[in-house]
Simulated scan of single mutants.
Amino acid sequence: MAKLDGKIALVTGASRGIGRAIAERLGRDGASVVVHYAHDETAAKDVVNTITAAGGAAFAVRAELGVDGDVDTLFAGVTEGLRAAGSPEALDILVNNAGIGLPAPIESVEPADFDKVFAVNVRAPFFITQRALPLLRDGGRIINISSGVTRIAFPEGIAYAMTKGALDTFTRTLAKPLGARGITVNTVAPGVVDTDVNAGWLRGNPDAEAAVSAQAALGRVGRSVDIADAVALLASDEGRWVTATWIDATGGAAL
């Protein structure tokens, strides 16, 4: 029996990068996975196909986050997909992974960009979680994907770092009231990970890769599967006694 047999997981931002790796790992562990995406339907379908080809179950739901009606759109798709699959209208695992960056120092941040990054990175996971709570079965898991920049000063992306700091606070504060239901709430904080988001400056750039690797105690750039494996631990029964915790998944960067 797989670790997550009978569980239903919703992973936001699951069409690429870290989100994709998380969705595929949870699928391999036996969960039925709701693959949320914002724009790239082809990539999301590829994630679904990868999970189902390996014997798992998954379906994709499109919803642009950070806009009016985003949570309604998302959960309409979740409900429709679960009904179509003959699954209970319930969730066991929520991974708030979707997010956007804002690579700008304080002098360059425009109010519209500030509002957008907070809408996607803070408002959306807050209200997604609010909507998910009535569906989340006792003993469930909420896992928020933050960033090492809440530990390591990152003035080049100050507004982005602030959004992740808010998410860290959300984790700790939410864990206490949900403990009575056996629901754990944790944060996983990646460092620099080799994903499409970082491809422009990292891939094919030996100097950049060497600089990032030199900052990490474990001596290399992170991979999406590194983060997915940490999430899988928290999602499993082995993570049942871990809550309100911020897990550093930076490979020991900037120690």
Score class of each variant (00 low, 15 high):
154 F>M: 10
140 G>I: 02
10 L>I: 10
47 V>L: 11
210 A>N: 06
60 A>H: 10
205 N>Y: 00
236 S>P: 08
62 R>L: 01
216 A>H: 14
52 T>E: 15
3 K>C: 08
160 Y>N: 02
182 G>K: 11
149 V>N: 13
130 Q>L: 06
171 T>V: 15
123 R>Y: 04
140 G>D: 04
199 A>I: 05
6 G>Q: 12
103 P>V: 10
103 P>E: 13
180 A>D: 13
154 F>D: 15
240 R>F: 08
62 R>P: 10
20 R>H: 11
200 G>F: 07
119 A>L: 00
40 D>W: 06
62 R>E: 15
218 L>G: 00
197 V>I: 12
76 A>C: 00
146 S>F: 00
18 I>K: 03
209 E>C: 11
41 E>V: 01
249 A>D: 10
253 A>D: 13
99 G>P: 07
236 S>V: 06
200 G>S: 14
100 I>F: 04
86 G>L: 10
4 L>Y: 02
170 F>Y: 11
254 A>C: 06
240 R>P: 09
121 N>P: 00
10 L>R: 05
88 P>M: 07
226 D>C: 06
228 A>N: 04
149 V>A: 07
238 E>F: 11
54 A>R: 12
122 V>H: 01
129 T>Y: 01
4 L>D: 00
221 V>A: 11
86 G>R: 08
56 G>K: 01
24 E>V: 15
189 A>R: 14
16 R>L: 09
120 V>G: 03
123 R>A: 05
40 D>K: 14
254 A>R: 15
199 A>F: 07
21 A>H: 08
48 V>C: 12
93 I>C: 03
89 E>Q: 15
189 A>H: 12
167 L>V: 15
186 N>G: 05
110 E>C: 01
99 G>H: 10
148 G>P: 09
246 W>Q: 15
87 S>D: 07
8 I>P: 01
174 L>G: 03
212 V>W: 07
2 A>V: 01
121 N>D: 03
232 A>V: 03
181 R>P: 10
253 A>N: 09
107 E>Y: 00
243 T>E: 09
245 T>Q: 12
131 R>K: 05
220 R>N: 11
200 G>V: 11
252 G>E: 12
